[in-house]
């Protein structure tokens, strides 16, 4: 198939960017979206032009590196997939596709479609851990049984890949879904309860400092999240936060 692409090109963080038009022929349905961009880039390189920069690594939907806004939707039109898992069979001959970086004040553009998501790392550094040293003599892993339901819910929250689609999908650029996923993972486990109060306070404080917006419950984040992280996590974090602040 033949496609019309409108791709955001921006030299570096300090330059102004713009959408540039490209046409690409010979796209096959079996190609992934990123393989389609590979073909475009190969063309550009062979014509002496600089290829389009975009973030990617695992190309199987787990590392959370790929991050494209495709026709206005983070990770494109398909549900529960990342950009790298999106296949061209979702498009048809003659389609126009607008490709932009994830947009948020807290995610400044570095180049073309590459953004800086280090704010997410800093939120995790503020409290996304359990304070246990490596010693080689921690208690036996089966010493504390954990209810399967809680363990499963904790796991589902922990499957967040830190891609940032939730932020890009939100009109307020809120990072609540991302932050609440980590808070939930630990809040649901006995090991994580010990520091629950400090954790939620520190992580929320950092989230606000990074310039993410407030949550107004639009639910757009859950719709676009490639891992199906549930809004229940936000509710749980709100409860945790409330009980932490009332505890003082």
């Amino acid at each position: 198939m033949k496609l019309n692409l409108k791709i955001w090109r921006q030299k570096d963080a300090n330059s102004k960017g713009e959408l540039v038009d490209y046409t690409l022929d010979g796209v096959e349905g079996d190609m992934s979206f990123l393989e389609m961009l590979d073909v475009l880039n190969e063309d550009l390189i062979n014509n002496g032009k600089e290829p389009v920069h975009f973030d990617h690594d695992c190309r199987e939907g787990i590392c959370g590196t790929c991050s494209l806004q495709i026709n206005g939707e983070p990770h494109g039109p398909d549900r529960l997939v990342t950009t790298c898992q999106l296949h061209m069979r979702k498009f048809k001959d003659g389609d126009t596709i607008v490709i932009e970086p994830f947009r948020a004040t807290a995610f400044p553009v570095i180049k073309d479609l590459v953004v800086d998501r280090s704010a997410f790392d800093r939120i995790q550094q503020a409290g996304g851990y359990i304070s246990v040293n490596t010693s080689g003599n921690t208690v036996d892993a089966n010493a504390i049984p954990i209810n399967k339901h809680d363990a499963d819910d904790s796991f589902y929250a922990a499957t967040c890949i830190g891609c940032g689609a939730c932020v890009a999908a939100c009109k307020n650029a809120s990072a609540m879904l991302f932050t609440s996923a980590k808070v939930s993972q630990f809040a649901l486990l006995p090991q994580g309860r010990v520091e629950a109060t400090e954790r939620v306070q520190n992580m929320v404080r950092q989230m606000d400092l990074e310039g993410f917006g407030n949550c107004t419950n639009t639910g757009a984040c859950e719709v676009e999240c490639p891992k199906g992280i549930s809004l229940e996590n936000i509710a749980r974090m709100n409860r945790e936060y409330l009980s932490a602040t009332t505890k003082g």
Partner: peptide, 24 residues
């Protein structure tokens, strides 16, 4: 050392699969 790894990871909050009795 393999046994220590599982203990360490569980202490860190790694949510391994469990059975209905709550065991790994």
């Amino acid at each position: 050392e393999s046994v220590n790894i599982i203990d360490q990871c569980v202490a860190q909050g790694v949510p391994f699969a469990r059975d209905y009795g709550g065991m790994l």
